[in-house]
Amino acid sequence: MPIDVAKALAAEPRTAPLVWGHKDVQLYHLGLGAGVPATDPGELRYTLESKLHVLPSFATVAGAGMAMMGGLAVPGIEVDLAAVLHGGQTVTLHRPIPVSGEATQTSGVSAVYDKGKAAVIVLRSEASDADGPLWTSDSSIFVRGEGGFGGERGPSARSEVPGREPEFTVERPIREEQALLYRLSGDWNPLHADPEFARLAGFDRPILHGLCSYGMALKAVVDTVLDGDVTRVKSYGTRFAGIVFPGETLRIRMWAEEGRTRLTVTSAERDDAPVLADTVVEHS
């Protein structure tokens, strides 16, 4: 069997150094579409080094690492990368991410679930610096054709939105070149840049990175619900429900509750086709 669950769970965690500075943070924010209008004080928090704060989803690209793909190289896991999908992502903040820093990231497999026709591998990465823990990041990796081994099915991550109209609805355009800019933060998958590769994968043109949509949605919550204060975010989780193309528009609906905001993210041009689902930001 390509996945040896016991061996994967027992494997020694991998450690790697992470180093980032203000230019990495600014590039990441620009890749999410920040900076429009360029002189807006709210946007300068994402683009101007003297006013800079760090969106917590930066944890997914800090150090320009690919923790998700690196985690698939652990002993006990031998899968066809063509069968791999990024199913979900959660980042839990232990304190605000500094504008520049050096940290150590420890990564390993925390769970393997049997979904019948597929397996779900949960890769956990924890980052700490000299002052202690910074964040914990969980990536849920969906591997088609690797289920049916008799393992636990795992918890349901479903998060139903309230049965009322959302408190906020915003639309965020995706620039034509946005995937080309976002990939400079570390995800070089040609699916997001090369039209020929995208066609081989079954798409008529390159698609936007799921983690770019993830960051765009968090920025919308911070700007709309949290008064622009990134330090209020405690955790942020989502399930990747569909694709979106550069040039389209994300429609982000937000239901504000005590201590959390639930949201849905869809493509406005494709009859609200789902992009992110079961999405929750926990905050103060």
Rank of each mutant, 00 (worst) to 15 (best):
P173Q: 06
E248G: 12
F197K: 01
M66D: 14
G101M: 10
L123C: 06
I207V: 15
S107A: 12
Q178H: 08
S137V: 11
E78D: 14
L44A: 06
G148K: 11
V25F: 04
D272R: 14
T249E: 07
P13D: 10
V99F: 14
E152K: 15
R158K: 13
D131E: 14
L134K: 00
A82C: 08
P37W: 04
V122T: 15
E167F: 04
K115F: 11
E146L: 10
R14T: 15
S128N: 09
I141G: 02
M216Y: 02
R144S: 08
V170W: 06
L85F: 14
A273V: 07
G132D: 12
V109L: 09
F149M: 11
C212W: 03
Y182D: 03
F240P: 00
A59T: 08
I97R: 09
L208H: 03
G145I: 08
T264K: 09
A64L: 13
T238Y: 00
Y214T: 04
G101D: 06
L134A: 05
F149T: 09
T169I: 13
E258N: 06
G108D: 09
G108M: 09
D114P: 10
G259W: 03
S50D: 15
G31N: 09
R199L: 10
D194Y: 07
P246L: 07
R251F: 03
S50R: 12
M254L: 04
S128A: 15
D278P: 05
V221G: 01
Y28E: 00
